[in-house]
Design a protein around this nucleic acid. Structure first.
Lengths: 157, 157
DNA sequence: TCTGAAAGTCAATACCG
DNA sequence: CGGTATTGACTTTCAGA
């Protein structure tokens, strides 16, 4: 997967698709001053290079009843690779956990968690997280306000 | 915007679209055992209710040269609403900052930041963040490994 | 590489059970 | 609610500049 060269038009296309993946190729072509077929070719190239990973629908957590957004710091015991593997496998099975990152600093893992309410969250932490033997410490923090929350990455250069 | 009732098929559709928004209505219809037109009607209903917010392309940060993922905790001075407004407006203009949440606990804001490298990150923090008068304290932590990072929300019930 | 045209596919609506 | 059928629009490929 090569580090592909992106020109100005490629970057424009990426910005457009990060904002609205339902634009037709014709609409994209118009906005970057191209006709549909070279535009399509560029997009296919970006997909094949893996720069465009996928197309997804974004849902509104509030409207799904997921009113509580929490970040959870998790400290694991440090005895070999096994507890780590167990923990990571468990995380993949919890749909409320949308992000799990190993972080520098005091805490081992930082989790982003969408829950219905505090009861739901409490259940997740107490019954699922804390019952795991490899989990040593857990600290939670809740989102009061979502100032910015986008999936759009800056396209460099 | 009503709190719409979702049945099993709606939830299936949402799960499919959260995974791949490029499925055709016919493909979705087949997978939920429906024909295309009622399937389309359901999707339009989900869009109009705002449950489906938008469709976007997801890019690969590594392939864009954005190898550094950081979380930054920011503490603001607590003198009136003005510094808050200034800070929030500034955040919107920084494309590297993809998430900015007001949080409970010690720190006021938690930022998720995609940068090329430590130099880029340092510039962002030193020249853009710390130069703001309302910013009192900044603590950074870096992602060592991305165990899970999805946009797909659990669809409850 | 792009443009433009042609062919096949799909989206979206209307209409019927 | 669900299905079928139709039309227009779009995607995708190919020839030519």
């Amino acid at each position: 997967m090569p580090a592909i060269e992106l020109d100005r038009i490629d970057r424009q296309i990426l910005d457009l698709l990060q904002d609205d993946a339902h634009l037709t190729y014709q609409q994209i072509a118009e906005r970057v001053n191209l006709s549909a077929s070279p535009c399509l070719r560029r997009i296919k190239r970006l997909e094949e290079a893996g720069i465009i990973k996928r197309y997804v629908a974004l849902l509104d957590p509030q409207k799904l009843g997921l009113g509580l957004l929490a970040y959870v710091s998790v400290k694991l015991e440090k005895r070999g690779a096994k507890p780590l593997e167990n923990f990571r496998a468990a995380v993949q099975t919890w749909p409320e956990v949308v992000t799990c990152l190993a972080m520098t600093g005091e805490m081992d893992y930082l989790l982003r968690v969408h829950c219905r309410d505090l009861e739901h969250f409490t259940h997740l932490v107490m019954e699922r997280l804390m019952t795991r033997p490899e989990v040593m410490d857990v600290k939670s923090s809740f989102a009061l306000e979502r100032v910015k929350d986008t999936t759009a990455l800056p396209v460099p250069q």
